[in-house]
Design a protein around this nucleic acid. Structure first.
Lengths: 200, 200
DNA sequence: CCATAATAATGACTAAAAGTCAATGACTTT
DNA sequence: AAAGTCATTGACTTTTAGTCATTATTATGG
């Protein structure tokens, strides 16, 4: 990587860091693009080199922690499908907690309309949770862990629905409960109920 | 009700109708306040007599169908708690479908931050689903249908999380599945799993 | 090492639209 | 019928997202 690419990466990182801090503290609607660039120590126009629209920075902010979980899950070996999902739920809510309610709010707002989510370099929508979870379920079908007639696509939607449901509800309630307590108490039950009929 | 009040009510209804049609068709972000007032046949300023902010109209738009369900549920007699909730899930998704994806998207965006949700005349936040569901669960505890140590508040959050999870997921997937099929296939399972340990 | 090309960064500027408010006149009250 | 109330208006202000011609910096190649 040459000097130019390094400094460009550095600038983007400065924007993401500044954005994260400001959104966490004040909320997305309460700040403007210039607040972010001032905090990052760059000019306003620079923001639009790295992000097409103001909202787009939130996807990059959350891609850092949430992207890690997806990688973890893909690497994981020797666990049952339900154990894998329980782990995923737990880590997801850990990220929700660490990102904070304002970031989660705006993130959810963004992904509600996939047309507003820009493709990344590798041509995937941010919401690659979906493809990743679907692959894991499909593998479980192929390996015989799940029955052949398992409706993989629908089940994937249900898992996503559980994850984003928890997050949405947490935001709506203004953070009235502990995400991790929640997953601890109910994830197992929900996942077991969903998969019961499809486990071999 | 005198002539003034009647005409004011009529104007508000015109705005809500115009707003619903435009948002359904084009999406909330793609229209502006003047589009709505033009369609309703009033001046721009009139909008701000009835709604503090542009977003606020969406809450009134969705309050019509979703408010009805809450009333239905409160009136319902002679049903078990799980039957009541199944009915609620079903009706909720019926409303989701009839409102259409653009309205649901903006509605979800709005309620994600309760601070942005204005109180209604009766001093309640829009999200009175929560209070209503909590009351139903509390009644079930009092009547002995549910155990005394049922964590009513937490269970209410979980039900809300299931409802809004389905809706969020539907919006995220750009309407890739049928909400009613979904509830038909999975509601009973989810609700049974959640309540199993608390039923007497 | 210098000339030229390529790219990153700048910040003044434009455009769009949210939200305000003083003025108007239709309706209500006394 | 005079005074008062309140819904309505639309021109105006304000805010801010997003653009773009220009400048600064780094890479390239003869």
């Amino acid at each position: 990587m040459n000097k130019r690419q390094t400094s460009a990466q550095k600038t983007k990182r400065k924007l993401i860091t500044a954005g994260l801090e400001l959104i966490k503290e004040k909320g997305f609607d309460a700040i403007n693009v210039e607040d972010i660039t001032k905090k990052a120590g760059v000019a306003k126009g620079t923001f639009y080199i790295y992000f097409k629209r103001k909202e787009d920075i939130v996807l990059d902010i959350s891609r850092v922690p949430f992207g890690e979980i997806a990688e973890e899950l893909e690497k994981m070996e020797g666990l049952s499908i339900t154990e894998k999902l329980q782990h995923y739920f737990h880590r997801f809510m850990e990220c929700v907690e660490s990102c904070g309610i304002n970031v989660c709010r705006q993130w959810t707002r963004d992904v509600l309309d996939p047309n507003n989510v820009p493709d990344t370099k590798d041509g995937q929508k941010w919401n690659y949770d979906f493809e990743m979870l679907k692959n894991i379920l499909r593998d479980a079908v192929l390996s015989g862990e799940l029955k052949k007639d398992t409706p993989v696509e629908l089940l994937t939607h249900i898992i996503i629905s559980e994850l984003y449901g928890m997050m949405t509800c947490w935001c709506m309630s203004d953070g009235k409960f502990e995400p991790l307590e929640w997953t601890g108490q109910f994830c197992r039950i929900q996942i077991d109920a969903i998969f019961k009929q499809y486990l071999n």
